[in-house]
């Protein structure tokens, strides 16, 4: 019982702290790649703290509700991950959060927010099937959806599921809102939709969505870590390399449109997953 409580606390604390640190590292690395010095490591925390203390301007009460739902869903998903729960359950709890964010954006009247919401729905539509296929891959290999048994698997899953790892990379790029898939919203708001999906969220509620985003980032990195669960060292190297590649891809591509995203992510992603799954089945 105490163990459960400790794990829940871990999840709730680790999410924002690690997420913020990852975000800070991301910004420094991006800056260095662009030949800039960049902000201090703790800048994301300063930003969120500033947002939290701003006056709350509510466009729509629904939106506030949705922001709370989003953070609740993403924190529950991460806590479930720490509790070593069922992977499918985690995915669906996380999906509820993502959908709530879209509902919040749709409840306002801004056209930017609306178009952003539509694009976000298309993004969810493109990455969710892939994420499920990755989980199916885990199941075919280990015979279980439970995280405990996946973590206990005797050899690194990356060796058996290399293509599915690439597919997870696509999902990660979409979820982290990196180029070329930063369609519905992006970090620096330098796009045709201003801040897209998040245009009408402001002040403390924008801070909530940011913290919820950190939870999601940690959850996705957690799923990545499943691919090398045999030792800590391998896991760390895999995560660092993955994140470095994400930032690199962000810096070498321009933003594309959703038509390209759908055809590319489904075309390449589904093919890669199917190839991997068939290979598993054969072997």
């Amino acid at each position: 019982m105490t163990r459960t409580a400790i794990l829940i606390a871990c999840g709730l604390i680790a999410g924002p702290i690690l997420g913020g640190l990852v975000s800070g590292m991301d910004r420094i690395l991006t800056a260095r790649m662009q030949s800039r010095i960049g902000p201090p490591l703790l800048q994301p925390f300063y930003d969120v703290a500033k947002l939290l203390f701003k006056e709350s301007l509510v466009v729509n009460v629904w939106q506030v509700f949705c922001a709370y739902c989003y953070i609740a869903a993403s924190s529950i998903a991460l806590v479930l991950f720490f509790l070593q729960s069922d992977l499918l359950l985690i995915l669906f709890v996380q999906a509820v959060g993502a959908v709530m964010l879209v509902v919040g954006a749709l409840s306002s009247t801004s056209p930017y927010s609306h178009i952003g919401a539509h694009r976000e729905l298309l993004q969810i539509l493109s990455y969710e099937p892939l994420l499920v296929l990755v989980v199916v891959g885990f199941y075919l290999e280990t015979g279980s959806f439970k995280l405990t048994s996946i973590y206990a698997w005797r050899e690194p899953l990356l060796l058996k599921l290399p293509f599915l790892f690439i597919v997870l990379g696509y999902v990660l790029t979409i979820k982290l809102r990196k180029s070329p898939f930063d369609l519905s919203t992006c970090h620096h708001a330098h796009q045709e939709l201003v801040k897209g999906l998040l245009t009408d969220y402001s002040g403390p509620f924008l801070a909530l969505t940011e913290i919820a985003h950190w939870f999601e980032v940690i959850l996705l990195l957690g799923i990545c870590s499943l691919f090398w669960a045999t030792n800590w060292f391998g896991m760390a190297i895999l995560l660092v390399a993955t994140y470095f590649l994400e930032v690199l891809v962000d810096n070498i591509t321009s933003r594309m449109n959703w038509r390209w995203m759908l055809s590319y992510v489904w075309g390449v992603g589904l093919t890669l997953s199917l190839v991997n799954l068939i290979w598993l089945h054969q072997g």
């Binding site: 260095r32 790649m33 662009q34 030949s35 800039r36 010095i37 690199l248 810096n251 070498i252």
Partner: peptide
Amino acid sequence: MFKMTHNILRNLVVRKSTRRY
């Protein structure tokens, strides 16, 4: 894309263009 990768990775090692004003 590959040219850009080269460019980006080189920026990681060379001197930064900005300064702490």
